[in-house]
Nucleic acid binder design. Structure first.
Lengths: 208, 208
DNA sequence: CAGTCGACCGACCGGTCGGTCGAATAGCCG
DNA sequence: CGGCTATTCGACCGACCGGTCGGTCGACTG
């Protein structure tokens, strides 16, 4: 039990502030000087911990995706009906996006980017693998449901896209969404309401 | 009828290439040199037509939002049941997003940004007004439906967010979405399928 | 004590950023 | 033709970009 003299390592501090900044202003909108400054370091010190801006970004992204996958994987692997699993999936995803307010923005930005990252970049590649795992999970879940006849026949890729759009976008919408809702996106009331609205939409649509 | 000697004005050419570039790489990711170059002009000439980068961006955004509003406004004002109006709204929005492939990305980026544009910027403010008009339209449409009892009771702001996420995100997802679908996002097949999936989701949800 | 090591720093590199300026050019009207 | 405005241009600016370099400092090791 003496894991660290420094209660929070500089490396983690950098990741922490980089996550916030990349989420807020995007990859191109963030300068490493600002990251360093907010981490309480000189800019040169960033390069001691990360070999490039790309690598730092990739690691931030991978960390966020990892958190999401850690929540979602047990759910898609659980042993209940596809309907309940889907409900739990939405529930879990909304929870984790609400818990880490930067995650949705970071993720949405990454999805909307044509990744300009060359074929070879260790950290970014790792992040993409994690994302692929998440997708595989929800795809399998929907597929199960369709084959068991509890979900109607559907285009699974389109439905996956709709699920992503309906969950991730909402928490990525920042000021815009808060103006629309009239309250913080991650207030417990808004989170609860968003969950029930999503689940009702998935179960019965909008009609009375 | 002699508005222009040049059949396509430099100004329009600039707007055209700026739209593509801002959509592809975002505000911070695009340099004015590149815009000028692709428009076949020197960088200084941009500043003859637009007083700043912000102003150019605002005008691009306003133009895109204007196209969308031009499609959606007649629909929300039409004289049929809310259910049919909603279906037409989704149909129209999907069509316009598929017609102008940059629109969705530009819009999604704008929504995810906390607009860092100061209180006063003519062009950006104008764009926000257009957006506000679009939102007012869909809000009113849903409200009508709920009050007439054809839509179930719901949180309208949350449903608006879900609609935006499900439509705009899909067409903004670029490479990622195309990999998921296995075909171009704007292929007529994918567009048709996305429409029917959305409408079925709104009408009956996912259940069999 | 000397040697090594990870963490950190300021100074600096070439290059690009958004933006300005004054001069040159092109098309119009008289 | 002369004058005028609109348009374009290259040269330039200060600020900032991602990234490198040489070196300092303190903790640990033999």
């Amino acid at each position: 039990m003496k894991p660290s003299v420094t209660p929070i390592s500089s490396r983690d501090k950098i990741l922490e502030v980089a996550e916030v900044l990349f989420a807020r202003r995007g990859y191109a909108g963030v300068g490493l000087r600002e990251v360093a400054e907010q981490a309480g370091l000189g800019k040169s010190s960033l390069f001691h911990h990360f070999k490039s801006k790309d690598a730092l970004y990739g690691e931030v992204l991978g960390q966020v995706l990892g958190r999401i996958r850690a929540v979602l994987d047990p759910i898609v692997g659980s042993d209940v009906t596809p309907e309940l699993r889907l409900e739990a999936w939405v529930d879990g995803l909304v929870d984790v996006l609400a818990t880490y307010p930067c995650a949705a923005r970071l993720l949405m930005r990454a999805l909307v980017e044509d990744d300009p990252f060359g074929p070879e970049l260790l950290e970014v590649n790792a992040a993409e693998q994690v994302l692929a795992g998440i997708l595989e999970g929800i795809h399998g879940l929907l597929d199960d449901g369709v084959r068991q006849g509890v979900f109607r026949d559907m285009s699974i890729p389109h439905s996956v896209q709709t699920l992503i759009g309906a969950t991730v976008y909402h928490f990525a919408s920042g000021e815009f969404g808060e103006n629309l809702l009239g309250q913080p996106l991650v207030s417990s009331d808004a989170v609860r309401r968003h969950k029930t609205e999503l689940v009702r939409m998935l179960q019965h649509g909008l009609l009375a």
